[in-house]
Design a protein around this nucleic acid. Structure first.
Lengths: 183, 183
DNA sequence: CGGAGGCGCTTTACACTGTCAAGATGTGCG
DNA sequence: CGCACATCTTGACAGTGTAAAGCGCCTCCG
């Protein structure tokens, strides 16, 4: 799994290859299949780990923020973006659902956990079990959509201007963009 | 290119294969390479076509909407989502930058055109040439981030509840989510 | 103490992929 | 006719994911 993360961060998700991972781990080409069954299984495990780490990051940010609801939200959004920027390959993999096993219970649980951190912070502590299309979720979905979309655009280099750090603009733009989020 | 679109809509971007496309088009495996040089070249051409179609859709929506700025914005967002839902594979391909040739001038021009439609509608007709990280773009970036993120979440089935149309929830949720966008 | 079982891995094989170099086939034009 | 050109095919090669079978070694248990 370490080799997978390294490879993905280095060459991007499209540059992943099961055999290359095996090579880097110093084992035979089919050794990974024993543990993960598939390329899909391995990638799913890595993505799950990613969602857990993201959830941890959000939890930490919430704990360290003050009591102001707005400040909390900004802290969460900041933590979200930082995770995406610091784990480019992993974050992009987490949304390549065509490569992942969406029937894996552990994986979907990790994803739901990450979202529920955000949801709890946005809608106050009224974290009831709701259907994913419940209209009451609208504020959280708005926040999630904006931050997720912004992070993906940043990773795709949409804010890059010629010369300089490709991710720096994202950091300075995020607060300005969040000005337009009303929750 | 038609065969590519069909294949991608049917099996998703990950299910694409140059040889399968050639098979469907009734030509030899290497015939596409003559016209597009690469798999990358073919996919870039298809993605470019996608951005042009998206731009057309946005332009049409703007033309048909009234004079109210807010109404115009909602119409554009609606058109954006409809394009994504109706062209699932194509839309996802358009953001798989690792598979595309980002040095292709035609391609980046098509992308910029689509964004500029949205930008002009959001910030009024003050469409000056600006750097992509210009703070003045913040409102447009906020809108773009939210709608783009929302569309991707919808395509990933994030709003799917058991039973029923997987994309229907997105249509009903979009207006509720846009309530939280302040431009 | 000794055998059974299984875990972790390797070997071998197969079908499939993208790409390259070279050759075939037709079509239009002087 | 003859030549050039666009379009496509053929053949080959390295690389890929996956399946089946086999091999060594450790652990547990009688």
């Amino acid at each position: 799994m370490d080799a997978t993360v390294a490879l993905i961060e280095e060459r991007g998700v499209e540059g992943f290859s099961l055999r290359e991972v095996a090579r880097r781990a110093g084992v035979s080409p089919t050794a990974p299949a024993y543990h993960f069954r598939d390329a899909r299984g391995l990638l799913t495990a890595v993505a799950t780990e990613g969602f857990l780490a993201l959830g941890d990051g959000l939890a930490a940010a919430e704990a360290n923020a003050g009591d102001d609801r707005r400040a909390k939200l900004l802290a969460l959004a900041h933590a979200y973006l930082e995770f995406a920027l610091a784990n480019r390959g992993r974050y992009m993999l987490m949304w390549r659902k065509g490569l992942l096993d969406m029937a894996d219970a552990e994986h979907v649980a990790a994803g739901q956990r990450a979202f529920s951190m955000l949801d709890r912070s946005v809608r106050g502590n009224a974290a009831k079990r709701v259907r994913p299309d419940d209209p009451a979720l609208a504020p959280s979905l708005a926040c999630w959509s904006m931050v997720h979309g912004f992070a993906l655009l940043a990773l795709d280099g949409a804010f890059e201007s010629q010369g300089g750090d490709p991710v720096a603009p994202a950091r300075t733009l995020l607060p300005l963009v969040l000005e337009h989020l009303r929750v």
